[in-house]
Amino acid sequence: MKHASLKYDVRTNKGLKKALIVYGGAPEHHPKEIADILSGLLREEFFFVQISTTLDSFIMAETQKDVDLIVLIWTRGEISQKQLNALLSLVHSGAGFVGIHASVGAFRSEINYHSLIGGQFLSHPGGVNTTYKVFILDKCHPITRGIQDFTVTTEKYYMLIDPAIHVVAATCFRNVMMPVVWTKYYGKGRVFYNSLGHTLDIVCMPQVLRIMRNGMIWAARKR
Rank of each mutant, 00 (worst) to 15 (best):
T153E: 12
Q81I: 10
A102H: 12
S5Y: 10
N112Q: 15
K222C: 12
S103K: 05
S123D: 15
Q64M: 11
H29A: 09
W182C: 05
F48A: 12
R108C: 10
L160N: 13
R210I: 04
L87K: 02
M178P: 07
V167P: 02
Y185V: 14
H3A: 10
P125K: 09
G77D: 03
L84S: 05
I100V: 14
Q207P: 07
N13Y: 07
K156T: 08
R210L: 10
T12W: 10
V191Q: 07
V128F: 14
I217A: 05
S39N: 04
S57G: 03
I143H: 02
M216T: 00
V168R: 06
I51K: 15
R108I: 14
D66S: 12
F135D: 13
C172G: 11
T54S: 15
C140Q: 13
K32N: 11
I165Y: 03
G189L: 03
L6C: 10
V181H: 05
V168S: 05
P31L: 02
S5T: 13
I73E: 02
C204Q: 14
D9E: 08
N175P: 09
D162G: 04
Q64V: 11
T154W: 04
K17S: 07
P163G: 02
Q81V: 13
K133C: 06
I136W: 00
G197C: 05
V67H: 06
R190S: 07
S93E: 13
L209I: 01
H141S: 04
Q50G: 10
C172L: 14
R108K: 12
I34K: 08
H166K: 13
V91H: 01
G146F: 04
E110H: 11
K156W: 09
V176Q: 15
L16A: 08
K65W: 10
I59K: 06
F173L: 08
D162R: 06
Q64W: 11
S89A: 08
T183L: 08
M1A: 13
P206A: 00
L84N: 04
A26M: 12
I161C: 11
L209H: 03
W218V: 03
V104N: 13
G105P: 02
K139H: 09
D138P: 03
V176N: 15
I217G: 01
R43L: 06
P27L: 11
V67T: 15
M159C: 15
T12M: 09
L20N: 06
V191D: 03
L200S: 02
K2V: 11
F47S: 00
V98L: 04
P163N: 09
I51N: 11
A220W: 00
A219E: 01
R145T: 11
G25Y: 06
G215V: 02
C204S: 10
A170R: 06
L122R: 12
F192R: 04
D201C: 05
